[in-house]
């Protein structure tokens, strides 16, 4: 079974192409790294999966459903880039995780006992329970990430999209975060993250997607994460990277 299926997807913006004829099939329960240069189409790919951008042509299936249907069922959860979040916003860690329950609540979004239980549960899983009353700006980079992962868990989504989760996160926190994600993978979640951080990619990603306006290659890390493929994706030589072959 595939969690994500894209067939010949093109996205045309007003002044440029976001994606051209991209096809990818991501199996359920895998941990995929999406790599590519800035503007290569990683964000567009995420937006297509979340149903925020409608492809100009091609077809998309998320958990065997259309993206809009998947939205309604809360299949996909998204962890935004640190720099796209307003960290001065007057909300606590608990409030943010509660936002994960948003799609499951009635129109007034009044939290019920079930919601509170799920939020505590999610906070517990990411190890942020004791920080629940902190304002979100008062956390370290790694903690901030974990809050949003907790939000995705509270949401109950099967597919987690993480946009540049390691930007602004120190090595120790990065390790803690990947451990957390690996645990989630064990629990059956499909993890997809975009990153610039190629050095340790092969240590936790079992699949890799190389993006350059289209999907250059996708498959198990051992087969796809090769010097040739990466050089082609990044238009140049890469240093200090541990390649599979």
């Amino acid at each position: 079974m595939y969690a994500i299926e894209l067939h010949n997807v093109s996205v045309e913006y007003q002044d440029r192409m976001g994606l051209e004829n991209a096809s990818i099939q991501i199996p359920e329960g895998t941990f995929s790294g999406v790599i590519g240069m800035n503007g290569a189409g990683k964000s567009t790919l995420f937006k297509v999966i979340m149903g925020l951008v409608r492809p100009t042509s091609g077809s998309v299936l998320v958990d065997q459903k259309t993206p809009l249907q998947a939205q309604k069922e809360g299949v996909v959860a998204y962890v935004p880039q640190n720099e796209l979040v307003d960290w001065d916003f007057p909300v606590s860690v608990y409030d943010v995780v509660m936002m994960g329950r948003f799609g499951l609540q009635n129109i007034f979004r009044t939290p019920r006992a079930e919601d509170h239980a799920q939020v505590m549960n999610a906070l517990e899983k990411v190890g942020m329970k004791e920080y629940r009353d902190r304002q979100i700006g008062e956390l370290s980079g790694g903690q901030k990430k974990r809050v949003f992962v907790a939000r995705a868990l509270a949401h109950g989504a099967d597919i987690l999209l993480l946009d540049e989760p390691f930007a602004g996160v120190d090595a120790k926190s990065e390790h803690a975060l990947t451990e957390l994600l690996l645990t989630l993978k064990q629990a059956g979640k499909t993890i997809i993250l975009s990153t610039h951080e190629l050095t340790s990619l092969s240590e936790y990603c079992d699949h890799v997607a190389l993006i350059k306006k289209t999907v250059v290659a996708y498959g198990p890390t051992t087969e796809v994460f090769t010097r040739d493929n990466v050089t082609q994706t990044f238009d140049g030589a890469m240093h200090r990277i541990k390649f599979s072959a």
């Binding site: 979340m50 149903g51 939205q71 935004p80 936002m99 948003f102 799609g103 007034f108 979004r109 939000r151």
Partner: peptide, 22 residues
């Protein structure tokens, strides 16, 4: 006041709001 939570989420993270189908 009735829809304050929805409005707040809209101000904080409209992408998340959209991704759950609102």
């Amino acid at each position: 006041l009735t829809f304050r939570r929805t409005l707040l989420l809209f101000c904080f993270d409209p992408t998340h709001m959209q991704s759950v189908g609102v």
